[in-house]
Structure formats: C-alpha cells, structure tokens
Write a protein that binds this DNA or RNA. Structure first.
Lengths: 341, 341
DNA sequence: TTGTATGCGTTATCAA
DNA sequence: TTGATAACGCATACAA
C-alpha cells in the first residue's frame, strides 16, 4: 500500500524555511522586496520540496492568468501549425502562455473548448473565422473575454480580426486560371457549413466566373473534409464526370495534394492533362511534383500580429478592428494552359 | 470609459435563482439530487448570466481536474498529430480533457511546460521519449504526478511506457537496405543530444552494418533539425561527398521528403541513382513520388493505449510497465537495389 | 431536497 | 523587511 504523499504547498515551504507564507509568495512574485538571505533560504526549501505554485489558486487570488487560449479546427495537418508557432513565440516574449485546443472542425466541440478555456482562466481567445453560434459571442461578452478572429477579413463584421480576404484571394487565383484558357472548372472544397473561409473561397471562384461571362452554376463541386485521401477520392469523382474539368481548384493544399496523387495514379499528367491548384501554401505545396500553384497565406505574420493585438486587448485596448494582411498568388507548375481539345 | 462587468460566479447564479450556492453547485455536479423545478430555475439563471464555473476554484475545492497534459516536441509537422488525435479522442470518451504544449525540441522549454501543466492541475502527463534531466522525474515524483512515456520502448528502463523499439526497427530497415546490395550508407538524423529516439535509430543502423561486416564509422552522418528544407540541404551535402552514398536513410519522413525533393532538383533518379528511406510513415510518405520506404509507427494505437494506461495510473494503477507495440517496415518505391557501379 | 459553513492554495492589504 | 489575515470561487460534510 502506497501512502500518497501530498503535493507541497506554499505553507509547507514556509514551514521548512521558517518564514510566513506571505514571504514565500513574495520571493516568487516580488523577489526584490525580500532580503537576499531570506530569499536563499526560501528558494532552497522550494527546491528541496519540489514545490510548484498552484495555478488555479494563484489565478483566483490575483485575478489574472497571463494565459491566452487558441482553438484551431485541426492539428492533423500543418495548416495552422506555422501560424500557431509564431503566435506562441510572440506570446512568450511578452510573458504570456498559450493554451491550445483543436475542435476537429466541429462547432459543438469548439463551443465546449471555448468554455473549457475560459473556465481555465484564459484572459483572451484566438479563434479561426467569424462564423459560429451567436450564443458563443454573447457568452464571451458576458464573461468579458476578448476574442480575436484570424484567417478572415471582412470589414462588414465589427469584430477584431487579423487575416486576409479569402474571397478576393481565390478570385485572383480563379481569374488566372480563366486567363489560361480554362473554361471547365471544378472545386474540391471543405464542407461550407459553419466555415466562412471555405464558403468565401467558393464565392471567389463564382465572382471570377461571372466576370468572365460564365455561369457559376457550371462550377463542378465536391465537398469533403480536409484530408489528403479525401482530396484523392474527390478528384476521382470529378474525373468520372462528363465533360471533364480541365482545372481542379482545391479549397486548400491538403486536398490539392491528394488530388495530385490521384492524378498520377490515374495516369493523368499535371498540368498537361489537368491543372490543379491549392490554397494556403503550406510546405506540402513544394514537396509534390510539379510544385503546387496556390495562394500564399501570411501564416507567421498573422500569428505574430494576432499575439500583439490580443495582448493589447487584454490590457484594455478597445480600438481594435479588422486588419487585412493580404494573400498572394503563388503560380507554380501545377497550373498550366488549358489543354488543346 | 468602460465599466468592466465582472464575470458571473456561483454566487450570482444562486442569487438570481433564489437558491443557495450549494444548490447551484449540485445542479452542475449531481443533477439528480435536486428537484426538476429548482434545476430548471437554476439552469435558466446560468444561461441568462452566461455563467461558466471557474476551473481553478473547482479544482482547488474538489482536488482533481480530470485533465491530462501532453507535451510534444513539435506541432510544425504531422509526426505527432495523428497519435495525439487518438489520444485525445480516447481521453474524451472517459471524461478527461487533454492539455497540449509543444517544446520545439528544447529540453529547457519542455521542463518549463511540465511545470506549467502540473501547476495547471494536470492529473498526469504524457511525454515523448525517456531522456530528460533526472531532476524533472524527481519533480514529478515529488508532486506525485504519474507520467507515461510514448514513442520509445526500452525494457531496461523501469518507467511506464507505451511505444516501440526504435533501434530494432531501424535495424530491420537498414538490414533490408544492405540486402539490396547497398554498401555506402548515409544517415540524415535529427540532433541526437537529448533525443533517445534519434540516437537509437542511429544505433540500429550501426547494428545492421556490424552484422554485415561493415564498419559503422563509415556511415556518413549529417545531423539537422526536423524540417523539410533541412532534409534537402543535408542531402546536398551528402551528394557532394566522395564516394557518394548509394542509400540515404533518414531519421524521419520529414527529412526524407526534403531529401527526395532535392534529389529531383539535382536530377538524380530515386531509386535508380540513389535510394532514400524515412521513418514514421506519416501521410507525407505517400504523397511524394516514388512513395517513401519507411518504418510504420503505430500512431493511433499508441495514442489510444497511452490514454487508457494514463487514466489507469490516475486511478492508482501501479502495475504499469513498458509495452512494446512494434513497428513494421513499409517497403516502397524509394528504396531499390544498389545501382550498378 | 435544500441550506450553512468550512477549506482548498494563493495573493494582497495592512500592521508590525 | 516581514507577518497576519481577508478575499478569490467552488465543492462538500453536515445540519435542517
């Protein structure tokens, strides 16, 4: 039978160092308000006991946590990884800690995670995209937890955000595809329900088609969750249709890479037989051959700016609005001219 | 000037519902010990106020959190993503929550995060690999926080773990490479300092070389952090050496994919001119062409088992030891016979 | 079934 | 410079 040795508390440290708990607390938080001698004694006791302050108690007493929560749709692929890394680094330099959770693209789980992070004392939240149950925004309002939206830019929405215009970016890409002579376009998209980024990207293509005198309803569409294998299967489905699209635009690089793999397996040459494009410009885009034409998202810049903005908001900055970082076309080998009929 | 509206507490809810705080607490934790009528009243008040229980206070009062922390070396690539996903899912089904942190492969940051997660009330910890400052293990011991190691199997180490034998797996792969006639081997490895997985993989190659009558010192070695670009640069360096290796083994798939990209850029055919292998079998491995020969790591199984084991440990199960899940060779197109001289 | 009262580990105010 | 002590928000043993 094992006696569970209780984890040491401030009180234990104080006892061992023959000082009051207040002094121990000061050693940790305001070290120069305490004598060198006492401090050494206390630090030694802390080391001996392997003491670590209880975060919950500290948060409760001091009423802040210096913690910012981030909820991303997925960790399974690298889409959000780079931006999150930059976010965390910037946070660290300002003495803040990041708490991450992933929602698997499920609104119900995201809501649960938001509540969980708030309950854990997050001083503020980073969220992807605007669209979610209004009740969540009311909740955050009621808790007075500042929230910042990234990966989207929509000046019509009066909510702090740092991102880029998904619709405009995809519009630019589609325009280039059309300029290359393609007329039969297809889109492999993430499910658009509760995903404003996916929907806006789709609308961007519609815009370009309209501008070129095409009927947006002729866009061949497959919706499927972000995963390489799904991209492959969707590509299969599209290639089985008549007439075959000559350009397959994808909602992100992960789907596009799946499409490219399947193209190779089907014996189709990219871009000679069919062009394929992505969105995001993650590392994957340059690992495949030919390299993937895509839209470059300013991952790191977005992460850094988000951290700075959020810290400002925690400190009461109320002047925050929507910031557009822009996204830039990366034209690479996977996009070519329309094949001769 | 903005009046900061205080976030609602149990007390506020109780007041609004005309009940005691104890009743509100019961509604949340033991719903069937309370009348339907009272419960409705309370729930309404909770909804009206947007109340969320304070995690820290709850943890302090109840002395448990149902939270398990996980610290992974990186989120930048997908190496740990799949396993972590499975880990989280399994945890969820048992009512536990996961807290993730990433250490950027830096021992000092990992240590900081271990303390941070413990301070946040993690009931237990998931860690990658055995090797770290012994002081950390003493700290966890002092705090009586159970820790489980994954991604490694070493029966000589008396510490709970769920993993596989990195050395044996890499040995098997190297043996196959040698069987194919290769004699000039190279290894692109992650830095082995404080990384037992990387070191064991390297030793696995040594083992195979010795068994084949080769001198392990002839293994051409480049150490570089896990990143696609680094794999490419390391490959460059290796191809510049005389004599050139005919097989480049890589410490993981990320490095291998970088090497493959550079091979193509150098005009080298894989595997006709040079063979390349990876380790981990992440999705990336089948996105490149030719598909990457690698070692399949049981990501999901490891994640699931880790969750179950850790929950057992939280509940006081003391019988946990080292579990070997095995890892399996995936021979694919990037590995071929040695080119004719 | 509901309410009262106490303690959880820390910070911060106020005295000493 | 240090020490008592009152919050902080919640769970729970006990009383009603």
């Amino acid at each position: 039978m094992k006696l569970t040795k209780p984890t040491p508390t401030l009180h234990d440290v104080a006892a061992r160092a023959n000082v009051s708990t207040a002094t121990v607390s000061r050693c940790l938080n305001l070290p120069d308000q305490v004598t060198r001698r006492t401090r050494d004694k206390v630090m030694q006791a802390i080391a001996d006991l392997g003491y670590a302050p209880n975060f919950g108690a500290r948060a409760m007493a001091s009423r802040r946590t210096n913690t910012i929560g981030a909820i991303i749709p997925t960790m399974e692929n690298a889409i959000f990884a780079r931006g999150l890394q930059a976010f965390q680094e910037e946070l660290r330099t300002h003495g803040f800690t990041m708490l991450v959770a992933s929602s698997s693209y499920r609104p119900d789980i995201e809501q649960e995670q938001i509540r969980s992070l708030v309950a854990r004392g997050a001083d503020a939240l980073l969220l992807i995209g605007h669209e979610r149950d209004p009740e969540i925004y009311r909740f955050l309002e009621a808790q007075s937890i500042p929230a910042l939206i990234v990966w989207a830019y929509d000046p019509r929405i009066a909510r702090p955000s740092v991102g880029f215009d998904n619709r405009a970016a995809m519009h630019d890409l589609a325009k280039e595809v059309l300029r290359r002579g393609h007329r039969r376009l297809a889109l492999i998209s993430a499910p658009v329900a509760m995903n404003d980024r996916a929907r806006e990207r789709q609308e961007g293509i519609h815009d370009a088609m309209c501008a070129a005198g095409l009927d947006p309803r002729d866009l061949q569409l497959v919706e499927t969750p972000y995963a390489i294998e799904n991209g492959a299967m969707a590509f299969d489905a599209l290639m089985a249709r008549q007439p075959r699209p000559t350009a397959v635009l994808c909602g992100n690089d992960v789907l596009a890479v799946g499409a490219m793999r399947r193209a190779r397996e089907l014996g189709l040459r990219v871009p000679d037989d069919v062009s394929i494009t992505g969105f995001d410009d993650i590392e994957l885009a340059q690992v495949v051959y030919p390299p993937l034409a895509t839209v470059h998202v300013p991952h790191r810049e977005m992460g850094r700016r988000a951290a700075q903005t959020l810290i400002g908001m925690v400190h009461g900055d109320i002047s925050v609005v929507a910031v557009d970082l822009g996204a830039e076309l990366k034209l690479r080998g996977s996009l070519g001219d329309v094949p001769a009929a």
